[in-house]
C-alpha cells in the first residue's frame, strides 16, 4: 500500500490530468444540490452530503441497453454497447460496500456480463466520511465511515488536503503516474485520519446507539406489515434510490431494429410480481414492503454473507410515509 498526501489545491489539477484518459464521475453542484455527474470543470462537491442518487448508477444504470438488434432479410445481428473507461471520484464507504454487494449478486454464476463489463472498466476513488449526515448509519451497518476494501484509492479529508491510500495496482499506478500532485504522508497525518474516523463513528453510534443488523431483524419479525403497508405511499422511492437495489425490467424499444434495454424496477410496486393469471404472490402492500426489508436484512445476509443495507440513509431521506423505518412502527 502507498500512503500519500494531496493538498486541496492539487485536487482539480489531478482530476484534469485523469480526465484526459478517463471519464471522471464526481459529485458536483447542480441547482445547489450535490449530484454525481461527468466532470468537465464544474465546482466539486466533495465536502457536501453524499448525493441522493448514488454513484451505483454508473455501474448498474437505471436504464441501459443490453444489446442492439438489427434485422436484415428476416435474420438478426446483435451489437453490444461499448463501455466507457471511467473513474468514480468521491464514492463514500457505504456506496463502496454496495458495490461489493452488487458484485456478489451480479457476478455470481450465471455472471451478468453487462454489469461485469462496467465494473471492470471503472476505477473507484473512495472518500472516507469524517462528517456523517444526519441519517447516516454506516457505523452500525459495518460499511463505514472509513472504507477497508474494494477501493483503488481512498481519500480522507484532513482539512488542508487529503490522505490518499492505494488499495489496488490501479490505484498505485495513479499515484506513480502523477507524482507532481502528491507528497509522502507524515505519521501525524496518518494518525489524524484514524482519529477523525473514530470520532465520526462515535458520533453516529451516539445518535442511534440501539441500531444494528440484529435490531432491524427483530423489528422485521415484530412489525405489523399490513399497517405499515397502509401507510406506504407506494411510490417506490426507497427502492429506486437504494444503492443495493438492483431489480430490473427488460423491454424492447424499436421495430424492426432497436434496443433491448433494462431499467430499474421495484418489488414495492404491485405489478412487479403479478403473474399472467392476474394472481399476485405478494398481493398486499404490506407483503411487498416486508419483502423489501427481508431481502436486505434477512435474505442477503443468508445468501451473500453481507447485509443488503449499507446505512447510507437515502431511503429515510426520500420516504414520506408516516412510519419509523428503523423501528418499523407507525409514527404518532
Amino acid at each position: 500500500m502507498m500512503i500519500a498526501f494531496l493538498s486541496n489545491n492539487e485536487m482539480v489539477p489531478l482530476i484534469e490530468a485523469l480526465a484526459k484518459r478517463l471519464e471522471v464521475i464526481a459529485p458536483v453542484l447542480s441547482g445547489g444540490q450535490p449530484v454525481f455527474a461527468t466532470w468537465n470543470g464544474q465546482e466539486l462537491a466533495l465536502d457536501a452530503e453524499n448525493p441522493l442518487s448514488s454513484p451505483l448508477e454508473f455501474l448498474l444504470p437505471s436504464r441501459e441497453a443490453l444489446f442492439r438488434y438489427v434485422q436484415l432479410s428476416g435474420r438478426y445481428t446483435f451489437e453490444e454497447p461499448s463501455l466507457p473507461a471511467r473513474l468514480i471520484l468521491g464514492i463514500r464507504p457505504c456506496d463502496l460496500f454496495a458495490v461489493e454487494v452488487l458484485d456478489r449478486i451480479m457476478t455470481e454464476e450465471p455472471c451478468d456480463q453487462a454489469y461485469l463489463g462496467r465494473r471492470r472498466s471503472t476505477v473507484l476513488v473512495a472518500l472516507n466520511c469524517t462528517r456523517p449526515g444526519s441519517e447516516c448509519t454506516c457505523a452500525q451497518m459495518g460499511s463505514g465511515p472509513g472504507c477497508v476494501a474494494g477501493y483503488d484509492l481512498a481519500l480522507t479529508p484532513l482539512g488542508d488536503g487529503y490522505l490518499v491510500e492505494s488499495g489496488s495496482p490501479a490505484g498505485v499506478l495513479i499515484l506513480r503516474e502523477h507524482p507532481q500532485f502528491f507528497r509522502e504522508a507524515s505519521n501525524e497525518e496518518i494518525a489524524r485520519k484514524e482519529a477523525l474516523l473514530a470520532a465520526s463513528r462515535e458520533q453516529m453510534i451516539m445518535v442511534r446507539p440501539d441500531l444494528s443488523l440484529q435490531s432491524m431483524q427483530e423489528a422485521i419479525s415484530a412489525a405489523d406489515w399490513e399497517r405499515l403497508g397502509d401507510l406506504c405511499l407506494r411510490c417506490g422511492g426507497c427502492s429506486f434510490i437504494c444503492p443495493t437495489c438492483h431489480c430490473f425490467n427488460v423491454l424492447d424499444l424499436g421495430v424492426p431494429d432497436g434496443e433491448r434495454i433494462r431499467c430499474a424496477d421495484s418489488c414495492i410496486l404491485s405489478g412487479f410480481s403479478r403473474m399472467t393469471s392476474g394472481a399476485n404472490p405478494r398481493a398486499t402492500q404490506g407483503e411487498r414492503l416486508a419483502n423489501w426489508y427481508r431481502d436486505k436484512f434477512v435474505y442477503m445476509p443468508e445468501k451473500i454473507g453481507l447485509p443488503g443495507c449499507v446505512g447510507c440513509g437515502r431511503c429515510h431521506r426520500v420516504c414520506l410515509a408516516r412510519f419509523d423505518r428503523r423501528k418499523l412502527e407507525a409514527l404518532p
Binding site: 451478468d112 431489480c247 430490473f248 427488460v250 418489488c267 412487479f272 404472490p281 427481508r294 431481502d295 443468508e302
Partner: peptide
C-alpha cells in the same frame, strides 16, 4: 411453480420466494 420472470438468470428479482 409459476412466477413473474424477466431475466431467467437470478438477477432481475421478479421471481423471488424469500431468498
Amino acid at each position: 411453480l409459476e412466477r413473474h420472470m424477466k431475466c431467467g438468470l437470478g438477477k432481475c428479482g421478479h421471481c423471488n420466494i424469500g431468498p
